[in-house]
Design a binder for these strands. Sequence first.
DNA 1: TATTGTTATACTCTATAACTATA
DNA 2: TATAGTTATAGAGTATAACAATA
Lengths: 184, 184
Amino acid sequence: MPAHKTAETATRPARALRGKRARAAAEDSVPAEDAGGAEVFAVDTVNASFLESLLGYNARRASLSLVGVFMKCMTRFDLKIVEFSVLSLVGRNPGITSRQLCQQLDMLPPNMVGMIDALARRDFLERRPHPRDGRATGLYLTASGRELVDTAEPQLKSSEEKAVAHLSEAERVQLMHLLQKLYR
Amino acid sequence: MPAHKTAETATRPARALRGKRARAAAEDSVPAEDAGGAEVFAVDTVNASFLESLLGYNARRASLSLVGVFMKCMTRFDLKIVEFSVLSLVGRNPGITSRQLCQQLDMLPPNMVGMIDALARRDFLERRPHPRDGRATGLYLTASGRELVDTAEPQLKSSEEKAVAHLSEAERVQLMHLLQKLYR
DNA sequence: TATTGTTATACTCTATAACTATA
DNA sequence: TATAGTTATAGAGTATAACAATA
């Protein structure tokens, strides 16, 4: 999935989750006038009805909510989410190239280099030559990389399960299905 | 929803959407050996089964997909998504303060200042004193800001509708419900 | 000629500290 | 003492161009 990016940066999903429950309500306008005679109001409860009517807005907030759960879960391993994703992918795809990782994780090659360097320096993965392409480099988990992935994956899974425990199994299946239908 | 951020930056949702359909498949390993005698493989089809088993991963990709639709839709107005969000909120909440916008949109006050300045310079909104709090500033759409919002909102709505047209009305309602259940 | 990995670098977005005016 | 808005700045994350080695 190569191309150019968009704009949905978010390093703090926690925030989006504690937002005011500002539904379509009265706007609590308290009319008055400023010096120039223009009307001025005080907003008591924020009305976000339009944004909240968009699937995209709700998908983003739901996404940020779970991203927050993942981030918190990964702190104990001192891993960012993309770093874990790289290790998980390398674990299931020994010999994967950085180009393939970039495609899978929607990153640009120049920005992958440093991450792989860092993970290699921490002895979680290593580079070996590609069997058929002299330009490429295959990536492999080290023993401690394998140990990390095998520990982290189940913890991620169970932290997500805890986070969505208030949904029934049927709802989770349905949600997964609908989400995939949305982007596939 | 104040606090600190996380890490899900994405300026290019388009990419995530064109990703390989790498389901849990054979790993297409082509065993060989490198100079040191270690085994090397070539990965043909990427196996992303673990990531794809996470609701969070799927929610993020779905979110990025719709964010991409929104971005493209807003280019004709030369607006970023957050800029549109600000205008939409100001439109429904005349007199809203920058602090309230920050809470609603999960932004930090210092990063809101420049955006409001820019939107004011483009004559889409203006600041007026707050009727009851001398520290605060109320935000209001100008006539052209109102015109912009009234034009952009229906276009965003219909571009999303087009993007999710392959879901039935019942599915969209169900998805909206489940997403809100996830983060509220 | 095209592609992989890489360097260098610019740009955008996000975060923290500190200041002022007001509450 | 606390809060709203602001400034300045640091730090991530993302972007493009260009190069050497290989296809």
